[in-house]
Amino acid sequence: MDTSRQAFLTLENLGKSYGVRRVLRGVSLAVGPGEVVSVTGRNGSGKSTLLKLIAGLLRPSQGEVSLQIGANAKPLDAAGRRQAVGYAAPDLALYDELTGRENLLFFARVRGRRLPDAERRLADVGLAGRGNDLVRAYSSGMRQRLRLAFALLADPPVLLLDEPSLALDEAGVALVAQTVARHKAARGVTLLATNDAGEAALGDRALVLDG
């Protein structure tokens, strides 16, 4: 990834409340190119919320998310962040009525991009030859692999993975580790939200959300 596309992420006292319920208390963090941060904590400690806030899917109740692509660029607004990140989470559903390949092609086209290497991308996540099946027929493991492919679709500078190894077999877990390593080698920014110790070990640092 060339330096103009390297991401610098800063969180300043980021928090989220729903009425009386405080889901996330002030989080401050700075992440630079080539870093991997694991976000750990009990169920309900706000890991998924944190990733959604960074991805621009939720509005913060307090604090700020600042994502710059390129060292001296202006920070992106929420719409910019949504386009700039690669996001995968258990509640991210893809279209059941489309095939795996059709899903990837659609999400690329809707971003204004062509996808000449759809086959390679499917193969990279272990779905070679299954691209022509409807997602409805996929197993949960296959869906998770497709989610990974979705996250990597735009070759994003920032990768936000929420429980990426969920439903995956050994080969799948290895795939996740490999993906994170590749992204790190390309000087991208990765945040991994997880309960699993093995997954958490993929990070250089851990942000622990519940003491």
């Binding site: 991805a55 899917l57 719409a79 386009q83 990140v85 991210l92 971003r111």
Partner: peptide
């Protein structure tokens, strides 16, 4: 209901 709105919000502009 299916949860596909999330993926769409991440990829496409609202007006499109």
């Amino acid at each position: 209901e299916r949860g596909t709105a999330l993926a769409l919000r991440l990829s496409a502009r609202a007006t499109t």
